[in-house]
Design a protein around this nucleic acid. Structure first.
Lengths: 209, 209
DNA sequence: TCATGTGAAAGCCTTCACAGCG
DNA sequence: CGCTGTGAAGGCTTTCACATGA
């Protein structure tokens, strides 16, 4: 019913709607949202139907209402906290990217082995030594993590995270993490993406993901 | 026939096979590769069939031969060059990640607006001022790019890249780029990924992407 | 006329299941 | 046996197409 694809598109719709709303747009038609997001109008309507929002044939969808409805699906009232493990370039890119994007999501703590980074606050986020991982994740009731560490240590970090209650991981390491069945892992594999681009850039006719 | 999903899995298989090969494994069965990659054995066999490689029921697949066959599909003999646009944390993470991963792929040039970075060589890659984009991309015959710039300028950069012949883009900016039909765009949307993790970490039973 | 909501069709991808073979 | 190769089935997503309503 609500699978990863739909969640992904809802996230995109919300971002686009939020931008549209900020520039004063009060209503959208499915074909407009389709064009903005790169989906078809039928897809947009079906997604909106799936989450139970209603538009009107005369006026399309109310932007504010649709944003609220999507947020009901995507967000929790209390918000959700991530731990970021690995404060290298990638980790810092993510920290820098975060503020203001998703008010309901937060990086509550970052961890690294480099003691130079520990104790400091980068992009509004406190950095701890990796030794503090277990204690901090527990104390801050963190249930999700971003793994941005070298491949060799990724499985070890994942094990430690799972052991202290983490049930969702965004994994940037080029490794298939082994985790319990009740833990969700989303992999971002840059090599895979690069090779897709390289392959399809050669083929004549192409399209987006 | 050879769609993005298959290309992605082939890339994963090759990485795993290369690791296996390095540690002395000469043959694999589909169920072994399946376990390593998180696919089913049937999927592995079907993918291998699709690219026209043959194993033997008695001995499975020859690792070296399979790597070659996958490489025939994924690589070009001359290799392919990327331009990297945006040498912030994300750009530098990608530069750092690159060396040795895919010998046939190379970042031939990086570009940034920050003149401090220009003229320097970071992670084995020369950085130019963004003003040099057109000339360098043309001179180096670059046909693919990684866009790691702020969202506001991403479309402009994409337009400039397309104008000088780029036909494949890996886009990290949270924007749907508008490009000609013969240009392939692969989007890596971190917000989307984070929201997926946040959503599925709440649901009881989960699984990988 | 032009939009939404949606059952039904189509298309796509994955998995099943088994013939064939060492 | 246990594995590959693969036609056929199954399941999942997307798209079609149209009833309905302003």
């Amino acid at each position: 019913m609500l699978n990863g694809r739909i969640i992904g598109r809802l996230s995109t719709y919300r971002r686009l709607l939020t931008i549209a709303s900020a520039s004063g747009t009060a209503r959208v038609y499915s074909h407009e949202l389709a064009k903005m997001s790169g989906c078809t109008a039928a897809q947009v309507r079906r997604d909106i139907m799936t989450i139970g929002y209603q538009g009107s044939p005369a006026k399309g969808y109310e932007v504010a209402g649709l944003i609220s409805k999507i947020s009901e699906v995507l967000d929790t009232p209390e918000g959700q906290n991530f731990a970021l493990v690995g404060v290298g370039h990638l980790g810092q890119a993510i920290m820098a990217y975060f503020p203001g994007r998703s008010p309901h999501l937060k990086i509550a703590a970052a961890f690294d082995t480099d003691s130079d980074k520990c104790g400091r606050v980068l992009h509004g986020c406190r950095c701890y030594h990796i030794d503090q991982l277990e204690r901090t994740v527990r104390d801050e009731r963190i249930a999700m993590a971003i793994v941005a560490v070298p491949a060799i240590v990724a499985q070890d970090i994942a094990d430690r995270l799972v052991a202290v209650g983490v049930r969702g991981i965004l994994n940037f390491a080029p490794v298939r993490l082994r985790t319990p069945a009740d833990t969700y892992v989303e992999n971002v594999d840059i090599t895979e993406s690069l090779e897709k681009v390289a392959f399809f850039a050669r083929s004549e006719t192409s399209a987006s993901k």
